[in-house]
Design a binder for these strands. Structure first.
Lengths: 202, 202
DNA sequence: CGGTGTGAATCTATTCACAGCA
DNA sequence: TGCTGTGAATAGATTCACACCG
């Protein structure tokens, strides 16, 4: 019952990230087309969008308006400050990735290996991992992204919790158990996703 | 209706990837505990496992037996050959990650930049991207993992399709639209996942 | 007791079907 | 005609409740 996963909300966040791409490569949008990109039925897309209650947009969808309406409906107005832990290959990838995001301001990055940090030329302020607890509240960071090795994920998580983080996106592959009174946690496991795909082959 | 996502199957694949971790850090397993790791109710976990129809295992769960039963039930017996496209930071991360997998044999990796490839010391045979179409059928590769830049994802996908790939896990951030008669596609977008988390903060 | 397994009840999501609009 | 919006119908998943086992 905890990590609630409302399918409509999931689709809408996907649609939001899909819209820029659609704007580039499609003339005009409709529910069937969007469904094809998102792997759902046109019906679901229509229902999701209609429930958005935007001032009566008539006829077909416009990417820019849709984006605004989705943001408004999901409460994605204010930008949230985030930090990233782990600067291996995955961390570096995410650093680039999120540097361009509108929804998240990547404000700090952490790693345990100092020498690794010194070499890096990146657009975000870097700190040693043990300063997390202090930096997170000071910079008012609400969201933590874990991209460490699995072995370090738990410790990293604890540091974030002690820093008062509100939500954690954990891409390390280690499963962080949910705890009452703890932050919202989303464990993403690429191996599991791959297995799910494999099931469809059988 | 296409990209069907059976929640029970999703949980079971997650559980399968979770089990090694549980084996390390928990004495004995029960549904509530598993639910805490997976962000679901104990009820769902019990139901999922009971439907596994294993020869009457009595009482509490054993990690090794569970893994076997889940594999059998999901048809994850035979190992599938996979290839990876894109050897930037994300690709390198995945290369390491999947090298250790039991379910997938990473058999080839591709990149468009030759100089990038020459520098790499990796445990998988590397090929230039334009050979995909030829290599995939020759090595009987069934699954493609896309870790390229978004701009190159579409072209990469087309090459995989022409090579006869059966399933695609696409981590580039670009959304590949589903096409009838095409392979199974799973688009994973980290930005969307992050947005979903942000929604929970509001 | 603290746990599992499982029908029955509930709650949620998807699909259907069609009216209404450009 | 081709698409959206939406109630009604269906299908599906989760939760409840309780019998049963070690």
């Amino acid at each position: 019952m905890p990590g609630k996963t409302d399918p409509a909300q999931t689709r809408l966040t996907e649609l939001l990230t899909l819209l820029p791409q659609l704007e580039e490569e499609e003339e005009n949008l409709n529910s069937r087309l969007i469904g094809r990109y998102l792997g759902t039925s046109a019906d679901s897309i229509r229902k999701d969008i209609s429930r958005l209650d935007r001032g009566d947009r008539n006829g077909s969808y416009r990417a820019d308006k849709l984006a605004d309406d989705i943001r408004a409906s999901l409460g994605l107005d204010r930008e949230v400050r985030a930090c990233l832990a782990g600067l291996g290959p995955l961390g570096l990838h995410l650093m680039e990735y999120f540097s361009e995001s509108d929804d998240v301001a990547l404000t700090a990055a952490f790693d345990g290996k100092l020498n690794r940090m010194e070499r890096l030329d990146v657009p975000v302020k870097l700190y040693p991992a043990w300063e997390m607890e202090e930096i997170i509240p000071r910079l008012q960071i609400g969201l933590g992204i874990i991209a460490t090795e699995p072995e370090e994920a738990r410790k990293t998580y604890r540091r974030m919790v002690r820093g008062g983080i509100k939500a954690v996106l954990n891409l390390s592959g280690y499963y962080i158990p949910r705890e009452k009174k703890g932050p919202a946690v989303k464990n993403v496991n690429i191996g599991a996703m791959l297995l799910e795909l494999l099931c469809r082959l059988s």
